[in-house]
Nucleic acid binder design. Structure first.
Lengths: 228, 228
DNA sequence: TACTGTGAAGCTATTCACAGCG
DNA sequence: CGCTGTGAATAGCTTCACAGTA
């Protein structure tokens, strides 16, 4: 085995997706003065099963003490490091409708390793406004802003019709990570990461399950058969 | 077979999670006057592989024509039906900070089978304001509002500290589907569905990958070779 | 022919259950 | 002893490849 703490093991995507939640849980515990937790306790706070938590953490290395548990500070620091939260990533937000506005003022960003360095919009009514202590700039200056601030992550909160164009411009000046709130698929070259969040999608998934619950109560019979 | 409410592994979760995206793609195509698509074309618009699309659709039944493709209208209708979008689910939003505001005005909801019937907040400064054509009510009236409008889905956009309490009150008056934007884990009884969206989580996942890219550039060596 | 629908194979993720260690 | 870390077992998801069909 390798002693190098920076040794890059392969961390599964499913695990990566849960690390922020573990970090959030650990931060909560630290705030309440808890110094040490078992996998069972931490799993409860994070909303997963303890076996899954232990397996996930095992991909990062061995940061627990057998018979005791995990030191909250140590583990929080390690997860932060792996997520790269020490680096204060410069973020630019394009599109300052209500959602962009919400993102710009979201304290969760500043507190967790991100630094919103630019707000851009196309609408002359919005350009020049002050939001979250920053002046909204024109999307025309996107390239200059990205280059000037070394923006690493681009957030797209525009209508769907503009999203691909904004994305292309981000990519053209070197942005390789994009968070897309517009309800459309973005096409990007290899090596660029896009994550998509669609608020309506989430509601639709809930509605699917809600409908099943309602149906099974109404019909009180299995959904098996449909005659053709 | 018995009408066991737990006996529903009909449509896999992973498939359900993609149905809204397929529907969005189909709606786009319909808007552009396209009447028929192949799985290849639809998959491209939806951002997946055609084999996955076909497998997903096969869980809903057989709505394509071999040698031809899918009729856009027919397939859109079928997915809508399965997602329960004909039912115009009544939704209540609690917490009208910027995010709640964004959700209340999000046209994606009204257009896709949801009906926001109530906005509630705790802050007397916000109660009484008009947002998206509705008057914000007091969270004190939550029970009355939920019962009166038959709210099926509760959206929580409050700070983390209030989220569990709001959730408990939703559940106590019969809400079984909750969309949680607060950065905390909600505990709910069996049979209640919670979906969580955390904006900071999404950024952290991107940052993880961004960091890996940056590291591998800095070190400029392939990820394979690790000397033991 | 050109496409869908689907078994089967391959992969990834989760859970189990216990060895290993403080 | 109690708890972590992990191989092994299981479950779930994706991809392949082609049989089946309008």
């Amino acid at each position: 085995m390798i002693a190098d703490p920076a040794a890059r093991r392969d961390v599964p995507d499913a695990t990566v997706a849960r690390l922020p939640e573990y970090l959030r849980a650990l931060t909560d515990l630290a705030g309440r003065g808890v110094a040490s937790v078992s996998s069972e306790e931490l799993a409860t706070v994070a909303g997963v099963r303890s076996a899954k938590l232990r397996k996930d953490l095992s991909h990062l290395g061995s940061y627990g003490v057998r018979g005791v548990g995990y030191e909250v500070e140590v583990l929080a620091h390690e997860i932060s490091r792996q997520l790269g939260l020490a680096q204060n990533w410069p973020v630019a937000i394009v599109g300052l409708g209500y959602l962009g506005h919400a993102l710009a003022t979201y304290s969760g960003f500043a507190n967790r390793g991100y630094h919103v360095v630019a707000l851009l919009d196309r609408d002359p009514e919005i350009v020049g406004q002050e939001i979250a202590g920053m002046i909204v700039g024109s999307v025309d200056d996107l390239e200059q802003v990205v280059t000037g601030h070394g923006v690493a992550i681009g957030v797209i909160a525009t209508p769907a019709a503009s999203a691909q164009e904004v994305c292309d411009r981000f990519v053209a000046v070197g942005v390789r990570s994009v968070l897309n709130f517009a309800p459309c698929v973005l096409s990007v070259p290899q090596g660029v990461h896009v994550r998509k969040v669609d608020l309506a999608t989430e509601l639709q998934i809930l509605a699917f399950h809600e409908q099943r619950k309602t149906e099974s109560v109404r019909e009180s019979r299995p959904l098996l058969e449909v005659s053709p």
